[in-house]
Write a protein that binds this DNA or RNA. Structure first.
Length: 474
RNA sequence: GGCCCCAUCGUCUAGUGGCCUAGGACACUACCCUCUCAAGGUAGCGGCACGGGUUCGAAUCCCGUUGGGGCUGCCA
């Protein structure tokens, strides 16, 4: 294979957001670079000038940093911008033309198609191979695919061979002289002395073409590794149109980067032993391209959420509180900033921590502590208060709470005793109180919540609920 | 259509010829715990796509079938 220094690269094109599939590919590259002491090169493939915006590049860098791939790490190099190497791409094309391994063709795309249709064989038919055309406006430069077989040595798939007869003379330079992806990508990889190309399987069909280019340009091809694509429930490649693929979105919904990273690594690969939840350090120690699976992997949101829940629960309490900050101080939170009380939040936090799988579930779970009134869920309220005993029970609770000691145990004993009078177990007796005070039938443990809310506010909400029952339409 | 890749529980996977009566995780179900909901604990459900070989022995090797996927642009 290759005894060159280990240099890997991740070469996204800036499209406005960072794809989870790209994140996994980046992570695979990164893990190898760290384990084997190689270099991870970031190259932004920004040749599609029409859709290229500087802030998108920053988005990629930020997203990479979020998943632990930091630009200031010793193993990180770049970012490089493909657009700044355009001269080299064209120069390489020129050399190929002069060496006779590439030739110009003046057929338009439509004409190529028409000929293919007429002959019944798909693809370009080599019409201009021997016409000796010179460069000119509108003429594309095509690679003269030689006869024979191209064998690709792939770390995850073994040897894959392609009959060159099935590979058409592909375009290197467009009619306007600009380089195509296949060429630019190879020239940059050669320039940057890339030793291992690790990318998604969708590029496998490009590989024989690119390998021929490496050779035609006088370079020894890299080690290839094509990892399986990520698919949706329909088993189709994850796409930005149909699927939720933006890393930024997962971050915004309160997925922890450690959880996402861990989950992504297990799509196509598994750490040794019986646990999949493992720290990044052991992933780096164990990850091998040779162990990567061969078949597409379903990106399962439920499992990601399960991983996330595990990671959330594993946080120390102060870490958890800190991690919640962006989600309780955000502008889209249901309360006003001045209503938020960090002391109260810290007190309820441990009870929230075991009840969520995503950080964006925090605010709706604790909002009743900061809002002026209970955020009543009318359906839940109506259902809970429908029982004949509910209002009577609430009335007794108000009475008792006026004089009860305001602590967890006293409140619990008080409600238990009242429940007994109605032949209700605590599980049933707490329901009307919970709905009255928190607005919902589910939430953090009730008595802790009441203690935090305080006697006055609790009583006020209980009375308000009684009023609400009387005025509610049947 | 052509080229290429792939095939273990619903899903992600362990498994590299005997340790497999196929292991784990998510999901699902039941029970325990319990002030709701979670978390936690216990148990359960569930799979080697099919057909031929090779071998004393196959989830593991070979061939075929079927099924899925990727690519098939003067996109990347």
């Amino acid at each position: 294979m290759s005894d060159r220094p280990l240099r890997l690269r991740f070469a996204p094109s800036p499209t406005g957001f960072f794809h989870v599939g790209g994140a996994r590919t980046a992570l695979y590259n990164w893990a190898i670079a760290l384990r084997l002491g190689g270099t991870f090169v970031l190259r932004i493939e920004d040749t599609d000038e029409a859709r290229n915006q500087p802030e998108w590049t920053q988005g990629i860098i930020d997203a990479l940093a979020w998943i632990g791939i930091h630009a200031d790490d010793d193993h990180f190099e770049g970012p490089y911008f493909q657009s700044s190497y355009a001269d080299q791409h064209v120069a390489a094309a020129q050399r190929l033309f002069e060496a006779g391994v590439a030739y110009y063709c003046d057929l338009s795309g439509d004409e190529v198609q028409a000929r293919a249709k007429a002959s019944g064989t798909p693809g370009y038919d080599g019409y201009s191979r021997d016409r000796g055309l010179e460069p000119g406006p509108g003429r594309v430069l095509r690679f003269r695919v030689p006869e024979g077989t191209t064998v690709v040595h792939d770390l995850v798939r073994g040897e894959v061979s392609f009959e060159n007869a099935n590979i058409e003379d592909f375009v290197l330079l467009r009619g306007n002289g600009s380089p195509m992806f296949l060429l630019a990508n190879v020239v940059d990889d050669i320039t940057m002395q890339i030793s291992h190309v690790v990318r998604a399987e969708e590029h496998l069909p490009n590989t024989p073409k690119q390998q021929m280019l490496w050779q035609a340009l006088g370079a020894e091809p890299p080690v290839w590794a094509h990892v399986p694509v990520l698919v949706n429930e329909q088993r189709k490649k994850l796409s930005k149109r149909r699927d939720k693929v933006a890393v930024e979105q997962y971050r915004g919904e309160g997925y922890l980067s450690d959880a996402l990273v861990n989950y992504l690594m297990t799509l196509g690969w598994a750490p040794g032993g019986d646990t999949e939840i493992v720290p990044w350090s052991s992933i780096v120690g164990e990850f091998r391209l040779e162990d990567v699976n061969h078949s597409p992997a379903f990106f399962d949101l439920k499992k990601l959420a399960a991983f996330n829940g595990e990671y959330i629960r594993a946080l120390a309490l102060d870490e958890f509180i800190e991690t919640c900050a962006p989600f309780v101080l955000a502008s889209d939170v249901p309360w006003n900033a001045e209503q938020f009380n960090p002391v109260v939040f810290s007190a309820i936090a441990p009870l929230v921590q075991t009840r969520i799988a995503r950080l964006d579930e925090v605010a709706p779970m604790v909002d009743f502590l900061f809002l002026a009134d209970a955020p009543i869920d009318e359906a839940a309220f109506a259902k809970t208060m429908a029982g004949p005993n509910s209002t009577a029970l609430l009335t007794e609770v108000i009475d008792a709470f006026e004089s009860a000691e305001w602590d967890h145990d006293s409140l619990k004993e008080t409600l238990e005793a009242i429940g007994d009078g109605f032949q209700l177990k605590l599980g049933k007796a707490q329901a009307p109180v919970r709905v009255a005070v928190t607005g919902r039938t589910v939430g953090p443990p009730l008595f802790e919540s009441l203690v935090l809310l305080g006697r006055d506010e609790t009583l006020r909400r209980l009375r308000a609920a009684l009023g609400h029952v009387r005025t509610a339409p049947e």
